[in-house]
């Protein structure tokens, strides 16, 4: 069996694992929702349940099927979910798919740009720190990274918001438009600067420290010492020989950081009133809106699984030494 086919089977096997995981996660969420003392029908009526006729309440209960067994309800939800119908959000009075559709684009925009920036920062600063190991540059970079790792991302966000949006007034501090302006590419770009920067600097420390650590380890490897002995200039040794081998494990870190990235985006969106899924998530949790909350959680899990799969496949493609039976 060729290696390429082996990687293909690896991907298929991991996909086959992802499906039951998503089923289990969604079913567990469903059971959790059922176990909560909140009755969606009472929730729907609110105080009006006092005046509502018992026939109407009973009618609604039958229509929604809230008194059927959990498994039957889950099966009904699943049948509709596969066709793209995720039910209705109680808190926002909209179909869940519409709620997510309206907001997902904004979140993807924020996350993708922020993640890319964090990667660039991580590579750049990590290489610099390793290159000048023990210098003041290295110390300030690693020290800053440890401090940023410990700082809650929303606190950093508030600090940045205060300095750059409220005091210096350089950049807008929230939303995607100013006042009643229509949404435009330029306006969004300007509004994006602060949230993207905060997301990037909150994620970058892991990448910086990882790159630095791996580079330092690769400095002791034979091929790097060999390159050095051949008299190649420093920058060529670092960028061409040391960095190349230490980048491989970086790929797995990309997959591993995805859950944290989603968490970070949730908090950054809240600080900067970004119109993504964060607001909807918090609203859904406060209003016990499980249709929306469950769909969002299952979706995030799917993203994490696919991200991990991609990272592993890329790693296997890039490094022929990686075993494929994992």
């Amino acid at each position: 069996m060729t290696r390429r086919r082996a990687i293909g089977t690896l991907a298929l096997r991991r996909l086959a694992f992802a499906v039951p995981v998503l089923l289990v996660v969604s079913f567990a969420l469903f059971v959790l929702a059922k176990a909560s003392p909140f009755d969606p029908v009472e929730r729907y009526f609110g105080v009006r349940i006092m005046g509502a006729s018992p026939e109407r309440v009973a009618q609604l209960r039958a229509n929604w099927g809230v008194d059927e067994p959990v498994v039957a309800q889950y099966w009904a939800w699943l049948r509709h979910a596969v066709t793209g119908d995720l039910g209705d959000s109680l808190s926002l009075q909209q179909p869940v798919s519409a709620v997510i559709g309206d907001r997902l684009g904004w979140t993807v925009l924020l996350v993708s740009v922020g993640f890319t920036l964090a990667l660039v920062l991580g590579l750049l600063l990590g290489t610099l720190a390793a290159w000048r190991q023990g210098s003041w540059l290295d110390r300030s970079i690693t020290g800053g990274c440890y401090a940023l790792e410990a700082a809650p991302v929303f606190w950093v966000g508030l600090a940045v918001l205060y300095v750059f949006a409220l005091q210096l007034r350089w950049l807008p501090g929230g939303g995607v438009t100013t006042g009643s302006e229509p949404v435009s590419a330029g306006g969004v770009a300007v509004h994006m600067v602060l949230p993207v920067a905060v997301l990037a600097i909150s994620q970058a420390p892991w990448f910086v420290l990882f790159v630095r650590q791996n580079l330092l380890e690769s400095f002791t490897q034979d091929h790097v010492i060999g390159a050095r002995a051949r008299g190649l200039p420093d920058h060529l040794v670092v960028s061409g020989h040391a960095l190349r081998t230490s980048l491989l494990p970086f790929l797995t870190l990309l997959g591993a950081r995805l859950p944290e990235l989603i968490t970070g985006a949730l908090l950054v969106e809240t600080v900067f009133s970004w119109p993504g899924i964060a607001r909807a998530t918090v609203e859904a949790a406060l209003n016990v809106d499980f249709a929306l909350l469950g769909a969002l959680t299952v979706m995030a899990t799917g993203v994490v699984l696919v991200g991990n799969l991609l990272a592993d496949v890329l790693y296997a493609l890039a490094d022929p030494r990686v075993a494929l039976d994992g």
Binding site: V25, P259, V282, A285, T297
Partner: peptide, 23 residues
């Protein structure tokens, strides 16, 4: 361990939010 892997795939904060929403 598969169960552990499955739970680890759900972002922590989101799972925490769901649990707080239930309780």
């Amino acid at each position: 361990m598969r169960v552990v892997d499955a739970i680890a795939s759900v972002p922590h904060l989101l799972l925490g939010i769901v649990i707080v929403a239930v309780l």
